[in-house]
C-alpha cells in the first residue's frame, strides 16, 4: 500500500470586508448618481474614509420630481401623524447611535464623548420638532376678530418643495436642525449635504428610510455645492430655499430664487445651533391661509 500523503489543511482565504456604498437618497430609494461619479471623502485629519456619490444637476431634477410627488401625501397627513413619524426617526437614530458617533467623530475630529453628545442633540432635535408638529398651527394661526357675525380663521399651510443647504461644518446635528423643521410642517425637502463630510447624511438617510417617512419627503444629495446649488435655486418647481449652508453662494442663489419668487431663509452662520429654535425655522416655510365662515357666533 502506497503511503498516504499527509493531508494538507485547506487554506482559508482571508475574509474580504464588506464595505458600504454611500449613495444618494431620492424618492425613498438609494440610487448612485445619474452621472456615475463619486468623490473621495476624508476625515478631518485627512484620512480617506470612503467614496461618496457625486450628484449632478440631473440628480437635483430627479430629487425635485420625487419631492413634488411626495408633497400631496405628506402635507395631507394629519399633523399628529407627522409628529409620530418624526418621533420614529428619533427612535431609528438612537438605534444606530454607535455608527453615527463614529462618523461624527471622524468627520468633525472631536472626542468620542463629544460625538456622543452631538448624536444625542440630533436625536433630541427630532423629538423637539415631533412635539411641534401638531402645535405650531395653533401658534401661527387662530381665529381673527372681525367686525361682523362671522368666523375668520387663519391657518398655516406648507409652502411646498423646499431646497435646503445643510451647514457644512456640522454634518449631522446641523443637517438635522435644518431638515427637521422643513418637513415638520408638511413640506417636502431636497437637501444638499455637507460637501466635505457627507457620510453622516447618508447614514441619516438610511434611518429615514426605515422610519415610516414616506418616500420622497426627504431627498438627500451629496456632492459639490457649487454644482448642485444653482440648478436647485433656479428650479421653478422649488417653492422655498433654506440657505443656511450656502456660504459664499448665498447672494447668487437668492438672485436665482427671485426669478421664480421663492421664499428664502437666509439666517446667520450658526443660527441652527440654538437648542431651542422655537418656530424660527418653521415660520418661513408656511403660507397663511385665511378663510371666512359666513355663519358665526
Amino acid at each position: 500500500m502506497a503511503d498516504i500523503p499527509p493531508r494538507i489543511p485547506p487554506r482559508i482565504p482571508p475574509r474580504i470586508p464588506v464595505r458600504r456604498t454611500y449613495k444618494l437618497y431620492v424618492g425613498g430609494a438609494f440610487p448612485r448618481s445619474e452621472s456615475g461619479r463619486s468623490y473621495p471623502v476624508t476625515s478631518s485629519a485627512g484620512v480617506h474614509l470612503a467614496n461618496a456619490a457625486l450628484a449632478s444637476r440631473k440628480d437635483v431634477r430627479d430629487a425635485v420630481v420625487a419631492a413634488r410627488e411626495a408633497f400631496p401625501g405628506w402635507s395631507g397627513r394629519t399633523a399628529y401623524n407627522r409628529g409620530q413619524i418624526l418621533y420614529r426617526i428619533a427612535e431609528m437614530m438612537e438605534g444606530r447611535r454607535a455608527q453615527f458617533a463614529d462618523e461624527v467623530a471622524a468627520a468633525e475630529g472631536v472626542s468620542a464623548g463629544r460625538a456622543q453628545a452631538i448624536v444625542s442633540a440630533a436625536v433630541d432635535r427630532w423629538v423637539h420638532y415631533a412635539g411641534w408638529a401638531d402645535k405650531f398651527g395653533q401658534v401661527l394661526g387662530g381665529a381673527n376678530p372681525v367686525s361682523g357675525p362671522y368666523f375668520n380663521l387663519s391657518q398655516p399651510e406648507p409652502t411646498g418643495v423646499v431646497g435646503v443647504f445643510a451647514p457644512p461644518g456640522s454634518p449631522l446635528l446641523g443637517l438635522v436642525s435644518v431638515l427637521a423643521p422643513v418637513i415638520t410642517c408638511g413640506n417636502t425637502a431636497v437637501l444638499v449635504a455637507s460637501e466635505r463630510a457627507p457620510l453622516p447624511a447618508v447614514t441619516l438617510a438610511e434611518a429615514l428610510a426605515t422610519s415610516d417617512l414616506p418616500a420622497g419627503v426627504a431627498n438627500i444629495l451629496t456632492g459639490r455645492l457649487a454644482e448642485l446649488a444653482p440648478p436647485l435655486a433656479g428650479h421653478a418647481d422649488v417653492n422655498a430655499l433654506d440657505l443656511t449652508g450656502a456660504g459664499a453662494l448665498a447672494a447668487e442663489l437668492e438672485a436665482l430664487a427671485a426669478t421664480t419668487l421663492k421664499r428664502v431663509l437666509r439666517p446667520g452662520q450658526d443660527d441652527w445651533a440654538d437648542p431651542d429654535p422655537g418656530l424660527s425655522r418653521i415660520r418661513p416655510f408656511v403660507e397663511t391661509k385665511t378663510v371666512w365662515h359666513p355663519i358665526g357666533r
Binding site: 431634477r61 428650479h235 421653478a236 418647481d237 422649488v238
Partner: peptide
C-alpha cells in the same frame, strides 16, 4: 432659459 420648469407654470 437654462432653468428647470415646474408644472405650476
Amino acid at each position: 432659459t437654462g432653468h428647470y420648469g415646474g408644472p405650476d407654470y
